[in-house]
Nucleic acid binder design. Structure first.
Length: 274
DNA sequence: CGGTGGACCTGCTGGC
DNA sequence: TGCCAGCAGGTCCACC
């Protein structure tokens, strides 16, 4: 479900309301997520500690604990974190409940259970198996046209698949990959080894622009994405190709097409993306 | 080595 | 109404 802009929106909401709260208790209703939740690990290392910050790396949310440690969440395709007053009854797919005081609790809800929640230490995080291989943040200066060109050297995979490879760049999922390729006027099937510097510069700029615009709009909501306060995003109104099969291209009026790449839908304009 | 396809899960929609 | 295929915003791993 959430790509970088949605996770970043959730992070900002959590940061405002979670900091300085102590985790008083944890209730695990369903440990079988993408990765089995280690209940003992949470009880030992998370309960009794306070949240002092909320950061993001790729699509992971990192809750900094005092005196030490990080509580990590990944939302997979359908994960949500709800922050609010304790509710009387658990809803279906409410898998984890973090008690934060008499008036506050955090619920991890995830229909498809592709999400994750685990504890790690600050020291171990960079070498953690889930983090070790991750590429640069797309909004950082490390992510540039020359960097993309260098990483693409000798490869022949389609550029869309390349942009969704987390070892190349993190946070670019299926929606924003299509949107960035459209903005840069690059055809999703182009082989990366044959793209030249101007195209890499355009793609890099398009990725930064699209992600920043989506963050500014608080993410994309189709039917169900909401942030930790239950608010929908607005970026669905600014999507130019994703989900618009058959609609006219905003640049040249040619119908937007859909195709399958690596098992995922790609939306593009066959006339102005080359 | 690089690249693809399927696996993991549940729920919704549209066609017959 | 029922059933079934296809689809969904992510990630990993076995296999060519």
């Amino acid at each position: 479900m959430p790509e970088l802009p949605e996770v970043e929106t959730i992070r900002q909401g959590l940061l405002r309301r979670l900091v300085d709260h102590e985790i008083i208790g944890v209730r695990v209703r369903q440990p079988n997520l993408r990765e089995k939740v280690e209940v003992d690990m949470l009880l030992t290392n998370v309960v009794g500690r306070s949240i002092v910050g909320v950061e993001r790396r790729a699509k992971y949310l990192l809750m900094q604990l005092r005196p030490e440690g990080i509580l990590v969440f990944h939302l997979g395709m359908t994960g949500r974190l709800w922050l609010g007053k304790p509710v009387a009854q658990d809803a279906p797919h409410d898998h984890l409940v973090f008690h934060l005081g008499p008036d506050l609790e955090l619920r991890f809800h995830d229909t498809r259970r592709f999400g994750m929640c685990f504890y790690t230490t600050t020291k171990e995080l960079p070498e953690h198996p889930r983090f070790r291989h991750l590429g640069p943040e797309p909004l950082s200066p490390d992510f540039s046209g020359p960097y993309l060109e260098e990483r693409a050297r000798g490869l022949w995979k389609p550029v869309k698949n390349f942009l969704m490879d987390a070892s190349v760049v993190v946070g670019v999922g299926n929606i924003y990959a299509s949107e960035a390729l459209f903005a840069a006027r690059v055809h999703p099937k182009r082989e990366v080894g044959r793209l030249r510097r101007p195209q890499w510069d355009r793609l890099c700029g398009a990725i930064k622009d699209v992600l920043q615009a989506a963050i500014d709009a608080h993410g994309t909501s189709f039917s169900d994405y909401v942030d930790s306060d239950g608010r929908r995003g607005d970026f669905q109104n600014q999507l130019l190709v994703y989900g618009r099969e058959g609609a006219p291209c905003v640049r040249d009026g040619h119908p937007i097409r859909r195709m399958i790449q690596a098992g995922r839908s790609t939306f593009y304009c066959s006339r102005c993306q080359r």
